[in-house]
Design a protein around this nucleic acid. Sequence first.
RNA 1: GGGCAAGUGGCGGAAUUGGUAUACGCGCAUGGCUUAGGACCAUGUUCCGAAAGGAUUGAGGGUUCGAGUCCCUCCUUGCCCACCA
Length: 855
Amino acid sequence: MQNYDPKKIEAKWQKFWEKNKTFEVTENPKKSAQGGSAAVGKFYSLIEFPYPSGEGLHVGHPRPFTAMDVIARKKRMEGFNVLYPIGFDAFGLPTENFAIKTGQPPAEVTKKNIANFTRQLKSLGYSFDWSRVVDTTDPKYFKWTQWFFLQFFKHGLAYKKNQPINWCPKDKIGLANEEVVQGKCERCGTAVEKRDKAQWMLAITKYADKLLDGLKEVDYITPARVQQENWIGKSEGAEVKFALSNVILSEAKDLSGERLDSSVSPQNDNSVKELTVFTTRPDTIFGVTFIAVSAELAKGWIDRGWKPEKKIIEYIETTLKERVATEDQDEKEKTGIAAGFNATNPVNNETVPVWITNYVMGGVGTGAIMGVPAHDERDYEFAKKYNLPIKEVVVGTNVQEKAFTETGEVVNSDFLNGLPTPEAKEKMIQWLEEKKIGHRKINYKLRDWVFSRQRYWGEPIPLVYCEACAGWIPVPESELPLKLPKVEKYQPTDTGESPLAAMTKWVNTTCPKCGGPARRETDTMPNWAGSSWYFLRYTDPHNDQEFASMEKLKYWMPVDWYNGGMEHTVLHLLYSRFWNEFLYDIGAVPTREPYKKRTSHGMILGPDGEKMSKSRGNVINPDEMVEKFGTDAFRTYIMFMGPFDQAVMWDTNGLVGVRRFLDRVWNLQEKLTGVGHVILSGAKDLRGESLDSSSTSRRTQNDKHTTLLHQTIKKVTRDIGSMAFNTAVAALMQLTNELAKEEKISTSDYQMLLKLLSPFAPHISEELWEKYGDGKTLAFSPWPTYDEALTKEATLTIAVQVNGKVRATIEVAADASEEAVKQKALTEENVLKWIAGKEPKKIIYVKNKLLSIVV
RNA sequence: GGGCAAGUGGCGGAAUUGGUAUACGCGCAUGGCUUAGGACCAUGUUCCGAAAGGAUUGAGGGUUCGAGUCCCUCCUUGCCCACCA
């Protein structure tokens, strides 16, 4: 027997899989390369496709990839027609920045990076269908990304809006709200500024309710579901109009197109006579003692002719500046300034002052709130600071000392008195609606999606602006893809325009509608665009007539199991669900929800327990590990290192241990009965047991050996299903250790071990299967089944407790009667000693587990 | 501040519905095999104690014959969100 030589074996099988197209699938399993018999069903397993960075594969990538590979391989053995595709999300800033630095065209850099990633991924033995690779930067792919954008546009869900955006002065790029982390650019950490810029928007907010509802019908891990719910942030309440005591504007101005419309009455004379607030607690409206408005809202008034005192203008300006720059929001104190006029509470005609404050956000609700210090903590804090009255309207704790925010009985509220909070809320909304001073309103935290970037390396937005037609005209679908022109410089211009803006030849075009002169949109799409539909393309990647045929979509969709990082559970998951639901509504895809099940993996940390990063010097290179220990050991270790959903530290010593395990599996060959024979289907081993690969051990006795085999099958099967890979590997180690103790091992037992091991360590398993298997490919051999009865041990060890402490253990036959166990226990010396002649008060028997005697 | 996880040997971590805490791996120790080994094999390894025995799952309390697991109070760490009215 030769020593285990992973390098040789792994190269051999990777070549074999590639040559035989082992993992390429079709919708008709009979025609597929390997699926000889009709499949029990389809299984679409998906991982988040990687961004092909210049650094190559990071050791973090293999964790989800290997996990889904294990699941996909097991599903194949269980008879499913398994699609496990791979692709590259290749548009993006790092490549563009690299191009800016070196002058190399991003397309070429991307090509090189993808080649390197492909080599690395292939060396890890993943069972990807390599015939379906997608690349988001391929014009054949982004043709459809652009097509989808046009569908959004045609259905009124894409619109251009001139609004303040988050602007990163370093990257010279507009950022979505979600790309701003604590006032800083998510990518480079530079403080973000506000800047006005016309941006393409996607109206994801129109899908807020659908996105929320859809979560009920899918199986997402709880944190993923909760995060999506929180991000959408639905709150139910009411909008209420408060009349203002004096008209604050005087000059007539053009009001069109501003977001402030919703909070200002549409008066011809442009005066602001009333103010709309949003509240989730209309039941507390009798407790209003002030009105708080955001600095953004007040700024809008000034823009439209309000002339307040100088200190008010100064306050507004400072607050707006702070809004973006603030780092430690923890210590941010609430501030405010009286606006100098009052509002009238419509329910009781009380006059309350209007304050401009820093704790009300311009972009939330109407940008104005009613201050109820007795029942809202923030209002309370503010009222205390500025000595505003606190009026109790819900019975609870002393509201002069602390805001009472829970539900209770309403008081001091006229017709609401005596009602519990929820009923008061309903009654008040109805009353407001009757009197036409307010109405029920559902509010969302979710904002529309800023969909344009002033960048080169992204999908061009396929629209032209025509003066004659006075608007944005779509590029005809027949002219897609609209390719990126070759440019000299990839750097965005100082004005913030995309590098494409400098390409006058490309920009100046003709209007598809009237034929007159027109200008192309020079913004490109964000990173998220290509990844919002890639799972659809995998089902039909070479289709040049449609993004995917309905027939293929119907076969493969929805994705059965999608695993990805927690960092993508909010944005990518929400965006791609939005696209899919929109496509479902226009009849382009067959399922409303794209993903049936979503799980997440934890991060792999460096050996020092810190996040891996170049600057810390704690980065582990997968290539190096594979070179040293072999792919199978690497894969198996990744699965063994800890609970899949938790962060784990890298420890190369642990990898050594797994390699030892594989060596042991390899060495078991020596103990095999009938070594050297290729065992064919229908053959029997030396014990006369069938070696039919679909059977497991045929022995029916509950001997220790058989029990362990069946227990292992059960445990590994179940653990893979629940992503408890670490304990599945542990069970395989345990079985291997037990088999190593025996003098001879039956070939059927060995076959079973190889099958269970193969999803984790496919190369060594195939190699050994070639020698000791049934002559077919292990990858499609039936997964072992177990007999529940045979997982039970024949004799059991029962713990005997006296007063809660284990004093003895006794061996009894399985399912022994309580009486028999009791009698045996009461003959144990140590048990008698602790009972010390006393009469047992109580004896509790837990079947097959323990006997508890209380004296 | 809010939400969600999680705290178990020297280390990574196991432990169906409450039922023998510490599986599996690392490390360490002793022995074997070897010219040698950082290779391999065997045995041992939660802590205290010579032993009998006792203690032990972040801290404290509770329910129970019995709690790592359930309940209450508190502490710590990680992740996500952050004045959402």
